[in-house]
Design a protein around this nucleic acid. Sequence first.
DNA 1: TTAGGGTTAG
Length: 611
Amino acid sequence: MLVSQYLHQLKLCARRQTSFSTIKKLHARLIKTGIAQCEPFPNTLIDLYGKCGHVDHARQLFDEMPHRDHVSWASILTAHNHANLPRRTLSMFLAMLDIDGLHPDHFVFASLVKACACLCDVRLGKQVHARFALSQFRDDDVVKSSLVDMYAKCGLPDDAYAVFHSICSKNSASWTAMISGYARSGRKLDAIGLFKRTPFRNLFSWTALISGLVQSGNGVDAFYLFIEMRREEIDIVDPLVLSSIVGACANLAVLELGKQVHGLVIALGYESCLYISNSLVDMYAKCSDIVSANEIFGRIQQRDVVSWTSIIVGAAQHGRVKEALALYDQMVADGIKPNEVTFVGLLYACSHVGLVDKGRTLFNSMVEKYGIRPSLQHYTCFVDLLSRSGHLDEAENVTNSIPFELDEAIWAALLTACKDRGNTLMGIRIADRLLSSKIEDPSTYILLSNVYAGACMWENVSKVRKLMGAMEFKKIPGYSSIEFGKETQVFYAGETSHPMKDEIFNLLKELDADMRRRGYVPDTSSVLHDMEHQEKERQLFWHSERLAVAYGLLKAIPGTVLRIVKNLRVCGDCHTVLKLISSIVKREIVVRDANRYHHFKEGKCSCNDFW
DNA sequence: TTAGGGTTAG
């Protein structure tokens, strides 16, 4: 075989991500023929191993090279980026300067910028940008495209646009990076505006726009754009946009639409793609159809950490804690290494049922066995578990040892537990701490006020009230939606204009009377405003989830599960009411609120009154 | 040899 033929074959392997054994065979033939050490084979081999995901082999070849040039360095840096090891990319770059005394070229700059983007390290990214701007490669458009992506990923879309604007000859990659940057940053109109102007209206730019909007929580807009993309008959030659649109169904908790998208996925032949299967597992779990989620999960041939984590988190969110923990054991037995998301799900599951020892073991194993540094979310879950289970001193010690700036949520969790457990001293200590910091959540003020009132500290109660009065709370209107068949009805709190309002009111009144006979007393402690007790009760009576449940009871096929999605968290009183209603009418009611899932059945809730 | 679009938590 000729040298050029070997080179051609190596490049083909890199593009096709050929199997490790094939690459090794080809490499062996190159060694046998004696050309493995001849230019440009050493660099081409590093590139090949790197692109096919064998960074260690690439590194071995690199270390054994007697002479390394710019291409060798660019190839090994790219290989580390490819293996998602951006810190190594940056540390190796320092070695490039120190050991080989080489200055970065445009290929190296592109790798460095990509590593900074991966780490969301804008400080370092700006240093690289400055060095690039002073170099002879400052007009390179490829590096500029990677800078656009870096600034956008670091949450600086305006800086991204400044670089984008300076690109002389913008190609599909530069446009896609900028559209994606705007969309991910939540700059919906800018993203759509730019998309309308791009001369590259292809699957890449459509995917960038739609996925970015899904990621920034604009699922509805993403869906309409997806429909427009289908109308334009864009050939969906890869499944990337589909995994995002499945994700949009998950975020919006729209089961019927999710099923239709699943149908499309099957029709286009992508059901067995791992990204797609994983997003389907998550979608069905989030749409409260945990049975279908399990079915999809069961059919995945090669499950990765995301597949396992999705089903573990799904089980945990639906209150199936034993199942979540058993799945974790199975995952570890299958040789899959858990990641930081897996542990958020597991700690959350333990909190649900007060499994303190298990939670402690998992938290420690995350650090000691898997080398994962706990994030604020992990600490919040762990402190929540400890404090809810009455281990208040330990919870406070852990909180004080957290190496981050603490947020309101973690203190509020601890304070709630102090109040519930009657630990007044610690409660006051934490309340004082909270009072001296910035509070944004109105419910934290209510909590503080209740704690001080419980300790008869009236001066502080009035201080909290004054602070509350001075704050302008953004009042988000509460609404609940209920779906059956192809119909979706949305109810807003206090809505009195619905065509069936009289029937809904009468049914709620009947149910209220029945509940009161069973000992129900409305709990108005979560109502924020100063008003008469009766008025507070009236407000609770018109909470949107109750309207949706009543409508569902009147309209849905008898015996079917009522599935409701609420934009805010279910209040304590509605939670009690929904438990009672499930028992009175003997129906299962599933509510997905802003935080979690509640399966109300026979007077109980799957969340174990944990929310 | 370098750049752009996808899944899990919060």
